[in-house]
Amino acid sequence: MTLPSQAFQDDSLDFKELKFFPDLPKRYKIDSVFKFASWAAVVIALSVLSILLIEVAIDGLSMINWQFLTSYPSRKPADAGILSPIVGTIWVMVLVALFSFPIGVGAGIFLEEFIADSFLENVIEVNIANLAAVPSIIYGLLGLQVFVRWLFPLTQGRTIISGALTLTLLVLPIIIIATREALRAVPGSMRQAGFALGATRWQVVRDIVFPQALPGILTGTILALSRGIGETAPLITIGALTYVAFLPPLSLEGLHSTFSVLPIQIFNWVSRPQQEFHLLAAGAIIVLMVLLLAMNGIAIYLRNRFQITR
C-alpha cells in the first residue's frame, strides 16, 4: 500500500493522478471486524486461563490450611504439606534476585550505554538473544557440570546455592534484554543534555538514564524471576531433591543445604497413583500462584513508586 504522503514526495509520480476514495462505511466495517477479532482473542485467552484456574481452585482450595502449609511432605496424603518446598522456593528466589539483578542490569547498562553500536555489542547481542531461547533443561545440564561438580568446593554439590546460580543463568538473558529495552526507551536528547552540561558518561548513566529506566528494569526483572520460580527441569537436572523434611538453617550454612522447590513437589504429586496426591498438587499450585502474584504485585508497587517520585 502506498501512503499518499509518500507518493507526494516521490517526483516520478504525479500526485494528481492518485485518487483517494474516502469509502468510510467500508473502512469502519473493517475497523469493527478487527475490533471483534481482538476481543475474541482476549476472551479466548482469558477463558482458557479461567477454566484452568477454576479447575485448580475447585480441586485445591479445600486442601489449603495451616497444616498443609506447615508440614513436611509425607507418604500419607492427610499428613502431607509443603513447608520445605515453600521455604526452598523462597530461598532460591531471593538468591536468584540478589545474583541476577546486579549482574543483569550491569551487563545491560554496559551494552546499551558504553559499547552501543560496536562490533562487540552486536556479537554479544546475538548471543544473548540466543541464550534467552535455550530450553531450560540445557541450563540444568550446564549447572550440574559447572556448579554441582566443578565448583563442588564452593557449592557443596546439589545445594541451594547451586540451584540459585543455575536459575540465575536462566533468567540473566531475559533481565539483560529487559534492561536494554528500558534504557533504549529513554530519549537520546536527555543523554545529550547531560553531556552538554559537561557530565561524564558514567554520570549521565547514573543520574539521568538509569533513574528514568528503573521502573522498566524492575518490571522486566520481576517478570524474569517469575519465570524462574516455575522452573522444574533445570532443578531436577542439577539434583534438587523431592523429599526433604528439614529446613535450611537461617544462616550462611543454609546456602549449602539440600533443598526442594514447589514445582518439583507438584510434579511428584501429580505423577503419584493416589487421587489424594493429585488434590494436594492442586493446592500446591495455588500456593505457587499466590507467590507469583505477590512477586508481580511487588513489581507493580516498585514501578509506581519510582514513577511517582520522578
Binding site: L95, L98, F99, F101, P102, L154, I161, M190, G194, R206, D207, I208, P211, Q212, L214, L252, E253, L255, H256, F306, T309, R310
Partner: peptide
Amino acid sequence: VFNIQPKQKVFLTSLAVVSLIATACAGNQ
C-alpha cells in the same frame, strides 16, 4: 529528571549493599 531523589538513592544503595554482602558471604562460605 536529572537527579535521583534521596529516597531512591537510599533504596538503590541498600540494594547494592545487600547484593554485595550476599556475594561476599557466598565467597566466605
